[in-house]
């Protein structure tokens, strides 16, 4: 039992890292740009397919495809914000609600596009390191889990340094905390929110590749990932990068622990119950910075 728990906690923690990096961009987009991008995980699944495709067509590992995907997804996000979201913002009173409807439609379009392109068959990513394991004491760690966790640490770490150390990063935080004060300090709100949104979509690519290392996926998978993302972001605090990291790990650990004590099918029930309790007790989330 103890061994089983240690094993579950370890893999839960590593899965938590993947959940964190899948969620951090959703949190940024919601908190900083007030866009509730429910298509976030559709972008992630798209990245998972592109990684899968790169590997099976050209033999390029998804990790090596990421440096190409990142700028591409950034530009996709910038285009989406400039063309769709700013136009919506000019007309809508409640940008969160309006963009939720908008991106829900976008998610459906993307899902169907992926169905056409890649069929509904679930895909399993088989990389050179898929079967590798590491033994840490009595605990066995799978290499893909460790790599997904590493991707999360690097991505969230880089975002954190960007936000804390660079002028542009500080401007992003300023816009999040007090848009009027930011505008009066000479910060171009349109420009900064567009850049932040582009970065948010770019992190979806990392999240998608990280998740594809752990789970099978098909075009409809994005909706089940979105449930996790909502949970992580609500727990962590909307807009908070470190909050997403912390909450991702906590949710991962809960998934790990609950898999020992309750049937797997009840997993989502536990998580959804947790979401409701959270909204009642601490709707602002764990962290605000």
């Amino acid at each position: 039992m103890l061994y089983e728990l240690a094993q579950s906690l370890t893999s839960g923690l590593l899965i938590g890292g993947a959940l964190a990096v899948l969620s951090v961009g959703f949190s940024m987009a919601w908190g900083i740009t007030h866009v509730l991008n429910v298509a976030h995980c559709a972008f992630a699944v798209l990245a998972a397919y592109l990684g899968y495709w790169a590997l099976n067509r050209w033999g390029i590992d998804p990790l090596l495809a990421l440096p190409i995907m990142l700028p591409a997804f950034f530009l996709l996000g910038v285009a989406m914000h400039t063309l769709l979201i700013r136009a919506t913002a000019r007309r809508a009173h409640d940008l969160g609600l309006a963009t939720m409807v908008l991106t829900f439609g976008l998610g459906v379009v993307m899902e169907n596009g992926m169905l056409l392109a890649w069929t509904p068959d679930p895909r399993v990513l088989k990389t050179a390191y898929s079967a590798l394991t590491l033994r840490v004491g009595p605990v066995i760690v799978q290499a893909p889990h460790l790599i997904a966790f590493g991707l999360a640490v690097i991505t969230i770490g880089a975002l954190y340094l960007f936000a804390e150390r660079t002028f542009m990063g500080k401007a992003v935080r300023a816009v999040w905390q007090q848009p009027m004060g930011a505008a009066l300090s000479g910060i171009d709100l349109d420009r900064v929110t567009t850049i932040a949104y582009g970065m948010a979509v770019a992190t979806a690519a990392v999240g998608g590749v990280a998740m594809s290392l752990l789970y099978t996926f098909d075009p409809a998978t994005h909706l089940s990932w979105l449930v996790y993302v909502f949970l992580v972001v609500i727990l962590g605090g909307v807009g908070s990068m470190l909050g997403s990291a912390l909450a991702g790990l906590i949710i991962g650990l809960i998934i790990g622990i609950s898999s020992v004590f309750i049937p797997l099918a009840w997993n989502n029930l536990v998580l959804s119950g947790l979401l409701i309790v959270l909204l009642l007790l601490r709707p602002q989330g764990l962290l605000q910075r």
Binding site: R173, A174, Q177, Q178, M180, Q288
Partner: peptide, 8 residues
């Protein structure tokens, strides 16, 4: 109301 960035 000053409009400072409160968590910075």
């Amino acid at each position: 109301g000053r409009a400072l960035f409160p968590r910075m």
